[in-house]
C-alpha cells in the first residue's frame, strides 16, 4: 500500500561561510515519503528545514548522502531524466509577493513551465484558464499582473504555476505563513482538495504546528540540522518522545482560555549551526541531558511502529 516516492538517505548540506568555518545546515537526515501522503516538516528558524526542502528539489547540490526520487538519484540524473524530475517535482514558496515576477502577466507566470517543457502547443491559453479555475480564480485574471491580487490570491497563482506541469510531488515551503488566519484555511483546503483529486504527494514545511498537524499524515521534527523525531501526526501529538518535541508542543498557545497546561519552557536560545554542540545537538537546552549526551551522537532509531526518534533516552 505505501510505496516510497522519495527516499532521503543521510543527506547533508554544508555551507562554507569563510574563515574555514562550515555551517552544517542539514547534517545527516534519513526518511522516506510515501506516494499520496503529506509529510510535515517542523522546527524553529535556522533548523535547516527549508535547506532540506531546497536540497531535495535540487536547488542546492547536496554535500553528502542521496535523494532518491522514484528510485533515481536526484542529484546524479542528467538529460531526459533530469527534465522529467523537474516536471515531477514542483515547489510552492512562502512569500507570494517575492516569488512571482512583477513584470509578467499571470498567464505568462503560469505558462512558463509549460513553455519550458514544451507542453502547451496550441492550447496554452486554455490550459492556463483551466488552471486558474482549478485554484479558484477566474479566467479573466490571466491578463493581470501580480500586484493586482491579494496575498491569498497570489498564493493561488503560485499553486497554479506549480500544478501546470502536472507534478507528482510538491514541496511547499511555509506556503501559508504570510497569509491572514481567515485566508490560511482557504489555501489549506485548496491544497487538500488538489491532493485528493490528483493523488499528489506533499512535503509541507512550516513552523505553525497546529496547521502542520492538521494537514500532515506524518510529521518530522528538526532541530539544528538533524531530524530528532518522526511519527504519524496523531501519535506525535499524543505521545511525543523527544524532549525537544515535548517542549515545542507545550509552547504552542491554544486558542482556549479554559485549557490549563503544564508548560515546558526551554531555557536559552538555539545555538549557532556553525558551531553546533557535540553529541546530541539539543543537549544544551535539554532538561533531561546527561553526560552521555555530550559524548555520543544519539542514533536515529525506530522505537515504535513508524515512530522514529534520535535520543539517548530511548536507545
Amino acid at each position: 500500500m505505501s510505496e516510497a516516492l522519495v527516499e532521503v538517505k543521510n543527506v547533508k548540506k554544508h555551507f562554507e561561510i569563510g574563515n574555514g568555518v562550515t555551517l552544517k545546515a542539514v547534517d545527516g537526515v534519513t526518511f522516506t515519503i510515501n506516494r499520496g501522503e503529506t509529510l510535515g516538516l517542523v522546527g524553529e528558524s535556522g533548523c535547516g528545514k527549508s535547506t532540506l526542502g531546497r536540497t531535495m528539489i535540487r536547488l542546492y547540490e547536496n554535500t553528502d548522502g542521496e535523494v532518491l526520487f522514484k528510485g533515481k538519484n536526484a542529484h546524479q540524473i542528467k538529460g531526459k531524466d533530469a527534465a522529467q524530475f523537474h516536471r515531477d517535482v514542483q515547489m510552492i514558496f512562502q512569500d507570494p509577493q517575492a516569488s512571482l515576477n512583477p513584470r509578467m502577466t499571470v498567464m505568462d507566470i503560469i505558462a512558463e513551465g509549460l513553455d519550458i517543457h514544451g507542453l502547451s502547443r496550441g492550447a496554452r491559453a486554455d490550459r492556463v484558464k483551466e488552471l486558474l479555475e482549478l485554484v479558484g480564480l477566474s479566467k479573466a485574471h490571466a491578463s493581470r499582473f501580480p500586484h493586482e491580487f491579494s496575498g491569498g490570491q497570489r498564493q493561488r497563482i503560485g499553486i497554479a504555476r506549480a500544478l501546470a506541469v502536472e507534478p507528482e510531488f510538491i514541496i511547499a515551503d511555509e506556503p501559508i505563513s504570510a497569509l491572514d488566519v481567515s485566508i490560511q484555511a482557504q489555501v489549506v483546503n485548496l491544497l487538500e482538495d488538489l491532493q485528493q483529486d490528483r493523488g499528489l504527494t506533499y512535503l509541507f514545511i512550516a513552523h505553525d504546528l497546529s496547521m502542520v498537524k492538521h494537514i500532515s499524515t506524518r510529521i518530522g521534527v528538526m532541530y539544528l540540522g538533524k531530524m530528532v523525531e518522526m511519527a504519524s501526526s496523531f501519535e506525535l501529538y499524543a505521545e511525543p518522545l523527544h524532549p525537544y518535541t515535548q517542549a515545542l508542543l507545550s509552547s504552542i498557545p491554544i486558542p482556549d482560555p479554559t485549557v490549563a497546561r503544564e508548560r515546558i519552557i526551554l531555557q536559552g536560545d538555539l545555538p549557532s549551526p556553525a558551531n553546533a554542540p557535540s553529541g546530541c545537538v539539543f543537549r544544551t537546552r535539554c532538561p533531561k541531558a546527561t553526560p552521555q549526551c555530550a559524548a555520543e551522537v544519539p542514533e536515529w532509531k525506530e522505537v515504535g511502529s513508524n515512530h522514529w526518534v534520535a535520543c539517548h533516552l530511548y536507545q
Binding site: V181, S182, Q184, A185, V188, N189, E192, L209, S210, M211, K213, H214, F234, Y237, L249, I252, I254, P255, V259
Partner: peptide
C-alpha cells in the same frame, strides 16, 4: 478557521 493542536479528529477547516 483554526485547526486545534489538541484535537483528536481531523476535521475540515
Amino acid at each position: 478557521s483554526l485547526p486545534r493542536i489538541d484535537g483528536t479528529e481531523k476535521e475540515r477547516l
